[in-house]
Amino acid sequence: MNASRLYRGAVLGTLVALALTACSSDPATESSDTAAATVTVEDNFGTQTVTVPPKSVVATDNGTFETLDTWGVPLAAGAVSLMPKTISYTEDDSIVDLGSHREPNLEAVVAVEPDLIINGGRYAQFREQFEELAPDATIVEVAPRDGEDFAEELKRGTTVLGEIFAKEAEAQELNDALDASIARVQAAYSPDQSVMGLIVSGGEIGYVAPSTGRTIGPMFDIFGLTPALEVPEGTDNHQGDDISVEAIAASNPGLIIVMDRDAGTSTGGGPDYVPATTVINDSQALQNVKAVQEGNIIYLPADTYTNESIQTYTEFFNSLADLLEKNAQTAENK
């Protein structure tokens, strides 16, 4: 056999060996090595499977903005127009702004090719549109559900986000802090003190119905607050329900909880903005109310209307506990 044949034979043998080696590799092993990791969570719509870590995140639920911001979760797109200036995402020009819920630019979500959309709140109505525009994205919604324990709902949503972003320990810390703030208020509050919830918007005072009213309403259930006034068919109107200041004064609440709606919107700081403190203080009809005379008026954090995060509630509950504990201490010293 000549050298040329020997060479060709050797080359052929090598090629056959390589082919056999390639054929003998385990496709299942190769697939498992490259397969993306996932986590399964339970949200408002059932079981959701999320690829982790998500590469392109969209957030529209104002109850999640501060948590995601605190955890350093980068956003590809979001309802930036709904975010208060206290959220650092508002300073990141790389985030595609989907606009407010009143004039949304939903189609803009297509450009960022999201694999996760954290939807809800004011954007809850657009779930189906997101499903059509981003069919490959997992949509997760954890906004507090109607009819459920509000505090538990806040913690549930935080836990789900922690599972998705590998922040389980941080989520537990937030939940524990909320529990601790609630316990403080419950220990310091006496049912003998009647409470009124108010929303100030556009210089007008609106009534917040216990349980059902916007933001403040659930606090009546969480703390067992005694309503100073109960109006039939109270709503969750974002400006509160219409009520006369005379009716508020007649109910004579011992504690008034106020949300300044405009302070948490683009109106805050504008030329026509009237702070809630000014509206309350300038109302002659309220000057003889017990809460006003005793200084028992407490305001939610300025950005609350557009930042209804678990951190916002914890911050306010601790402030409320501070006031109640101070009053109790003062009463003991008399």
Rank of each mutant, 00 (worst) to 15 (best):
M1E: 04
S4N: 11
R8N: 12
T14Q: 11
A17Q: 09
L18T: 13
A19L: 15
A28V: 14
E30F: 08
S31V: 07
T34L: 13
A35W: 03
T40M: 05
N44L: 11
Q48V: 14
G63F: 07
L75F: 01
G78T: 05
I87D: 06
Y89Q: 06
D93G: 02
V96W: 01
V109E: 00
V110G: 05
N119C: 06
G121T: 12
A124T: 15
Q125E: 15
A137R: 12
V142E: 08
D146V: 10
R156A: 11
V160E: 04
A166Y: 04
E170A: 14
E170T: 06
R184Q: 13
A188K: 05
Y189H: 05
G197Y: 04
Y207H: 08
V208P: 03
P210V: 02
R214P: 00
T215Q: 06
P218W: 01
E233P: 03
D236T: 12
I243R: 01
I243L: 09
A250E: 13
I256L: 00
I257L: 14
A276D: 05
A285N: 10
L286Y: 05
V289N: 10
K290H: 10
N307W: 08
I310K: 11
N318T: 14
L320K: 05
K326Y: 03
K334G: 15
